[in-house]
Design a protein around this nucleic acid. Structure first.
Lengths: 335, 335
DNA sequence: TCGTCATGAGAGAGCGCTCTCGCACGTGCT
DNA sequence: AGCACGTGCGAGAGCGCTCTCTCATGACGA
């Protein structure tokens, strides 16, 4: 093996010459086409091994118009340039990555990481994806009113969302069974003997917020408590603090709270403490997400666990499937 | 704009025809080559706008042998198939991603995410990178005895490591100034008035472990305490627990401990509590990393902060630079 | 025996781009 | 006037692959 500088890697041609067949035949073997003489197959395979041949992806996707790779797009609301993206710090993100890679890695497809955090990037994304011949998109959108799902489906890019899109769109997604989770929370609060239960909900225009609110209310109703005080937060810690202040003003004797996500729950707990309430002794607080925020608290917050890794894995599987068969109608899997 | 199914995106040819010039000229304009008549440049640019042309990356990299994209490789020790990758859950990872994307995103290069968690993947990686025409690698290796740095440099793949490689290799890396950090920790413990100070070190074969131990010892020596008891851990929480047990057996009256990373510190704190020691009242514990583990504790662990985002950003910049000028000798930046 | 058809393999045309080469033109020198 | 030279552009050859089209071969029924 002379390894002079810039030795070109072996090509289909080399393999063909070594095997004494045509390029087409080698290609057939590589791609597992039927109707190839087993003897020749063997010959070719040996030649491939001998030359150390690896197909050139650029050349392949030039003609097939597919790269065999997908994008993991994280869509954030507009940010100022100075503060860094906060999404990635959330273990949530890591768990998604973990789940996705668990499925993709063994299949030898590696996701391209993209952060969409400004309007211009958002607008250019579709073009970029076409240009890069990205086969599909795993979209993690924490942008309530995101246009990306619509854009992507309009551009006919196979897409799977993490969590249901705010505006209904003909797109696949995975999500948790919010109602199941909220039911668990309601049961827990009631079991604990809480008498005056309230909830800090998420934004009503975000499906997750809406569904967790309604789900919780329903579950409480089934416990014979049709009316549950609720205040609306914006899924941020600060929002949780403000919501908690309002809630305390409205209902000072509250002793059990379901908060629609952990970040708000952390804020709520802080405010409760400021007001001299002990958590969980005086007021029981249950969050939702099982994110880092829950563990930051002392003592750790009770929270509804989401099987994020499994969801992410399923998301990846769904995308692969959609790429395989683009004509299938969008599907959704609920955990 | 007729948008019949599978309308081909515009090519260089189209643009050339619209502009009434040759493909070569359009290519020159796109790539900003000198020696192009300003008038023609204008014409071409207008044609590009009109057609909505976007260069096809596959075609381009087929001839240039570069993709303009880099890989973010996470190298883990061998794992069993059943337990998922734990790296991604660590906020450390998220912070790195955040820093990297901060630099790469604006330059329109998006990293490809790869997890290397088995020998076979490790062995195949170099080939994969060549096949994919990946221009460079950002390597996050938490595998003490990793062969990847050597492999990559041997294959002449531009690489930048996060943290110094265990085996010396001619490769660029970013790292923290362990000695500065450990000095901070030593100062703090002494300032607190701790009299019997010890340290739980990392593995000696990992540079970070070794340097933090030596650095801490040096700093203590400068405080007039040349001998500091130390036990060795393996950078895991469990390892921290075991190390703490040993330390308590050796030196029951310890009242100040520097632990080489936060995970071990968390374990140490737990063991201290089991033994009835109050932290930080009876025993002061200082960790290293500023990872989630530090915040999990109650009260939060004192920890030496690492500017991970900045390090990651610098790492990305270094890689871009190395890709630009491959002949430069490897450099390292210490924070 | 001849024609028909399935089967396996090769020839060759691109995919969209870059880049070298050479041509035409204008400028400055002898 | 003649020659050298630089400058701007187009022609055309690939990059490594896939895929269609064609051809050779052998099996089979009429």
């Amino acid at each position: 093996m002379s390894d002079r500088l810039a030795t070109r890697p072996p090509t289909l041609d080399h393999v063909a010459q070594v095997a004494g067949v045509s390029r087409a035949t080698v290609s057939r073997v590589v791609n597992g086409a039927p109707n190839v003489d087993p003897g020749l197959q063997d010959l070719v395979r040996r030649a491939i091994e001998e030359t150390g041949y690896v197909p050139n992806r650029a050349a392949r996707s030039l003609v097939t118009r597919r790269t065999g790779s997908v994008a993991l797009v994280v869509s954030e609301p507009e940010r100022h340039a100075d503060d860094p993206a906060t999404v990635f710090t959330d273990p949530f993100f890591g768990r998604i990555v973990s789940g996705v890679l668990g499925v993709l890695g063994p299949r030898d497809v590696h996701p391209v990481l993209m952060l969409v955090d400004s309007g211009s990037v958002r607008a250019g994304l579709v073009n970029r994806l076409r240009q890069d011949h990205i086969d599909g998109v795993l979209l993690i959108s924490i942008y309530p009113d995101d246009t990306l799902p619509t854009l992507l489906t309009a551009a006919d890019v196979p897409t799977v969302l993490f969590s249901k899109p705010a505006r209904p769109a003909p797109v696949s997604y995975v999500d948790v069974a919010h109602r199941e989770g909220t039911k668990l929370a309601a049961d827990r609060l009631v079991d604990r003997g809480c008498a005056r239960i309230a909830t800090i909900a998420g934004p009503r225009d975000v499906p997750a917020g809406q569904e967790r609110l309604v789900g919780f209310q329903d579950a409480m109703a089934r416990h014979g408590r049709p009316f549950v005080a609720s205040v609306e937060g914006n899924f941020t810690q600060q929002g949780g603090e403000q919501a908690m202040e309002r809630l305390l003003a409205e209902q000072p004797d509250v002793d059990g709270i379901f908060v629609a996500n952990d970040l708000m729950a952390a804020g709520a707990v802080a405010v409760l403490r400021e007001h001299g309430r002990r958590v969980p002794d005086d007021v029981a607080v249950i969050g939702f997400d099982d994110s880092a925020a829950a563990r930051d608290c002392r003592p750790p917050l009770t929270t509804v666990r989401q099987p994020v890794e499994n969801m992410a894995a399923e998301m990846a599987r769904m995308l692969l499937d959609r790429i395989e068969r683009p004509d299938q109608p969008p599907a959704s899997v609920i955990f």
